[in-house]
Every structure is written in C-alpha cells, then in structure tokens.
Design a protein around this nucleic acid. Sequence first.
DNA 1: TTGAAAGCGCTAACAC
DNA 2: GTGTTAGCGCTTTCAA
Lengths: 364, 364
Amino acid sequence: MASDEGTGSDGGARRRFSRPARLVDLAEHSGYSIKTISRVLNNEPYVSERTRAEVMKSVHELGYVADHRARSLRTTGSRSGYVGLIVPDMRNGFFADLANAVEKRVSAAGQTLLLGISDESTAKEAKYLDVFRQNRIEMLMAVPAGSDALTRFSEQVPTVVLDRMQPGLEDAVDFVTANNRESARALTSHLIRAHGLERVLMVAGEKEISSVRERQAGYYEAMREAGLQPAVTDQHLTLPDAEAGALEMMRSLAAPFGVFSTGSRMYWAAMSAAARLGTVVPRDVAAATFDGSGSLGVAGPLPTQAQLPVATMVARAFQLVTERALEPDRAPRTVTVECDIEYGMTCGCMDPSSAGPLVIRTGR
Amino acid sequence: MASDEGTGSDGGARRRFSRPARLVDLAEHSGYSIKTISRVLNNEPYVSERTRAEVMKSVHELGYVADHRARSLRTTGSRSGYVGLIVPDMRNGFFADLANAVEKRVSAAGQTLLLGISDESTAKEAKYLDVFRQNRIEMLMAVPAGSDALTRFSEQVPTVVLDRMQPGLEDAVDFVTANNRESARALTSHLIRAHGLERVLMVAGEKEISSVRERQAGYYEAMREAGLQPAVTDQHLTLPDAEAGALEMMRSLAAPFGVFSTGSRMYWAAMSAAARLGTVVPRDVAAATFDGSGSLGVAGPLPTQAQLPVATMVARAFQLVTERALEPDRAPRTVTVECDIEYGMTCGCMDPSSAGPLVIRTGR
DNA sequence: TTGAAAGCGCTAACAC
DNA sequence: GTGTTAGCGCTTTCAA
C-alpha cells in the first residue's frame, strides 16, 4: 500500500499558522492610521512618499495580505470577483479542455474561478447553484445537468450555457452550442456521397443530452436525404457494450460500409469491432466521428472527424455573459459555432501511407 | 464562423439582476428582528414554530440567500470554506483526473473549490498563491510548477503537494507522490528478465519534473542492475519529435528489443515509430509505459503499464493536509503510494488474441 | 496630507 | 422567545 516516512529533520512546534495580519496590525506596527494604510494599499493619491515607503515596509514585514471577503463586501457594488463554472465530469476530455480555456479567460480578467462538478446529477448541480449564489459569483458558465434551479438562478446572475441546449431555457439564458446536427449530417453525407457508400451505420450512446441527440438527428437526416435505410446501435453507456452492439450490426452488413459514431468512446468501440472482424479501414469500413477534445488522432489513424472548437466556444460564451452583465435586459441569444471538420484517413480521403500515425501490429 | 440568432420571443426590459436580499429586507418583510431571522436561518433553538414558518415564508418570497462573505467573516475563526487547487494543465488527463477526485472530496466536506491552472509557469503559480491567500483558503493542494513562493505560503496555510517533489520543500510541506522510480525499474526489469531482452530503449520527455525524472532514473537503475547498456532518446516535448527520436534509435537496434516510455505521449511516439518500421508488437518490440490517467488501453492493445493511483493519492493528500490543519507543528511527511502495474499485451504477457482491443488495419 | 467614524451583511454576546 | 448592541476587516464618507 502506502508507506509513510517522516522526512522532517527538525521536530517539535515550529509554526502555528498564525492568524493573518490585519490593517490594525499594520497601523500598530507602522504608527499610521488605518485609513492611511488603506490608501497606500489601494494606490490612492495624497500620500507622501515617505509614508508610503514606511507602510509598505510594515506590509512586507508582517506579510500582510488583504482579506478579499472584507474588501469585496465593502467595496462599491460589492463585486465578489468570482466566476462560477459547472461541468459534468472533468475526466471527459472536452470538459477538461473547456475548464482549461475558461480558467484562462477568468484569470486574464482578474477574476477567480469557483469550480463545480455536477457528475450529471441535477441535485449536485442545484447544490452548486446555491453555493455559488452564496458566494455572489458575478457570472456562471455551465454545461448543465438539467436542474430546473438553473432557470431561477439565471434570473439573478448572468449565466451562459455551453455545449448543450436545455428545454425551456432558450428564452431565459444565453447559449453557445456547436452545430452538432449539421456536422453530423455533413460527416454522414460525406461517407455516402464522396465515398459512394450505400450502407452507413451509426454507433451512438445516450440520447438524453441535446448535443449528442443532435448528432444522431444529423445522421438520420443525411440518411433520409440519400434515401438510405438507417442502421443504428445506440443507448450504449460503456465501451464494451457499444463494441458488442457495433459488432453485431457489422456482421449483418456486407463490406464496404460506413460508420458514423457520436463521440470518441463510440468511435473506439466501432474501430474495435471493425478490427475484430478483420476488416481494413477505410477499404472495408469507412469511419467518421465526433471528437470532443481532439485527442483521437494520436492513438491511431487520423480520423475523419468533427471537432468542437473549444476556444471559440469559450470566447463567445465569455462575450455573451459579459454583455449580459452589462445589459441584463437584452433578449437572450443562442450562438451556434461551427465544428471543425477534418477529413482524415479513416474515410479514405487521406492516404493511409502518408504521414499519418500508428497501426500497431500485434502478434507472436 | 459563428452565427447569432436572437431566440428571445419577448424583447425589452425584463430584468435587472436585482441586488440580493439582505437580512434587513427579510426583517422588513416579515416584521421580525434581524437576529430572529438569523436564528431561523441557522436552525438555532428558542424560536417558535410560528415565527420560523413566517420567516421562512419571507425567505422564499424574497429569494434570500445568505452572503457567504459576510457570514464567513463574522463566524467563529472566520473560516472561509475554500480549498485551493493548483494544477499545471487541465488538458493533461492525469491532472484532470486529479481535479475530479479533489472536487469530490472538497464538496463532500462542504467546502468550495477554487481552481488555479499554472500552465507550468512559476509566475502564474505565485499569482494564484497570492489570490488564494487573499481569499483565505483553508488548505491548498498543488501540483507545483516550482515557484519558491510556495515555501512561504505553506507556512501560512496547510499545504499538500501532489505528484512531484520540489527541492527544498521536503521539510516544509507534506507530499504525496508515487513510487515512480521503483515502478519504472520494475517495468524495465520485467522487459529484461521476464522477456529475456538484452536491449531496452527509453523514450522520454522533459526531465525538469521530478516524477518524470524519477522514471528515467528507474530505467537507468534497471539497466545497470542487469549490466546492460542504456539506450535513450529524451528531451522530447512534442509527439512528432519523440517519434523521430524513437525511430532513429530503433533503426540501430536489432529485433527483438524493448521500449520503456515515461508517459502516454512518449508511448504513442514509440508505438508510432514501431509501426513505421513494420515491427510486430510484442514479438519484435516489447513495450512498457507509464500512464497518467489510464486512458491508454481503449485505443490500442492493452499496454503493459504503471498507472498512478489518483484516488488513493487524493485521499492520502486530503488526510495529510487535514491533519496538518489540526496539528500545524507536526513534522512534514512524504507519502509514497505505489503505482498499479498492469501486465498487458504489449510486452507479451497477455495473449494479443484474447479479449484485448483494437488493431486498426488500414489500407486500400 | 491625514484620521475618525460609519457601514458592507452577517453572527456573537448579552440584554429583556 | 425575542431584540439590541457590538464587531469581523475592510472601504467610504467627512472632518481636521
């Protein structure tokens, strides 16, 4: 298990996490009044250089750091400096990317990020909305789990919703989503038209989440347009589950055929099934997929994929929510950003023998 | 680009983000005094049921939510309820995992998570330390970027450092690291002893970070023990760079040989190079690697790998930092947790024909 | 140029 | 049971 080893060379009572110094302490230490010190700290005018220097000396000696709570409580408008972010799961590469991008914006704006992870639970989401309101966050960015507490919340705090739509909220908050349906339709159509496939299978997961549901809708649309019969295996939550579903469907299809998958997990499931059947990509199976975080290509042939433009989405979201903070009464907007579609090796557009990565051959 | 579409059906001034209600507002609304209301809100005794009910009615009608800043400022010990977390980069799966696990602990403890991302920059790290101190976080968990401001910080706030050691800090803060060196040695030794390889190559990235450096040290140790000559390509920051390096080294080695890689990126680089040379895994090239976040297996043959036990590390870290908050003067401890070593298909221990995933065959 | 007092929104200590 | 007062650490009046 885990092994402890005390590394301290000096034992005994060394510190006590002394209570942070306050303005009064600085006043006592420097001999100036509280207000003068406050002036120095806030770079206000009408302080002599000598005073300023002496006060700063005390500041350093006592290691003074202002208490943000007290300051923000009193300061005009009582702005907290907090921005809240709620994502469903940080292990999902897309949400991690999102959090990363959000942090950059937030810190660049001199704000501090409060992070909540909802685990796709409406209860946890509602809990965080409550906590965030207690903390008087100035704005919220959220990939919603579906709690209806969000409606009330958005009436009190500038809110922008990312990645997913939420029914009944379109007229209440700003949204930034990707054109999931159109991109899915484009990918599927590409398999059909550009590669002349008459059979295109879809491997899909849950359909409770709007963005994923839209991708499924896009697939159906493309198939309908082409007058083709949809072939779908869906509702898969785990990878092995999806793989089994894909395998079963693929057996019934004669090569060549296409596969559209709604996300990276579904993509790996599809590829795994294809491999198990001994098919060759893209000759026998042409694949196209959605990818949340763009980490797909490193581990296999460069996929033909639609990627969500995280940076763009976050930038737009910030713009929207900032504008809403300034103009609370403007009509809510829904911004749809376009996915980056990359035509890679798995559909046959890019030559597999070209610079692309990785076909691990295994065997004895 | 992006298309805006105003979706609001009702234009015009609908809301104004009204200033949140305060206790005074509740007092006015309900006719009770501020203190009585405070009592109700804090579930204190000596309040009649009737009063309680009436106050709660006002609370709901006004949508009252207590201001955490004011409350925490006044409340005993002025505890903030904040826990700070600093990670270098959320796009790295291991750190995302870590953040996920930390959030669970923090929220379970009823605390709120302040997130900082350092981008491996000591300046950004120092900035966050400052911000966190202003916000009076109760404890800090950090994967350090190397700022020496951390030393002073750890004297003021209970701090635990995760994943990496930092020179000069061992006697100041608690650490939770993995046995990187030993696991690297074990993996390398395994390739040498169990699979009878006389040549084992290492593909490695940067060596500024202690955990990664330790892995390299483990490799050298195993090679020395076996009386073998190290063969190393390192200092690679990008994947293509690492791949080129691996390719060059592999050309000069006669199969069969082993490859030890220090992380998932280096692993893919090695696999890519192996594929490019037309070798078969594990017959010609036996591979073993470190993996931060356990997402390696889904995309290829199950690798022989050492995985960092994120949940364990976070649990231990929480324990350490909590204990330190209670007993500030105890000697700092360094806890080393063991990596989970999985013997998979890439070294030959597990049969490639068994249930393992994915060999994407590409071709026309 | 500086300082004393009031008050941000809340809870703690003591009245009634 | 309920209300009044003080004060958390800070900024903002206003006076000196």
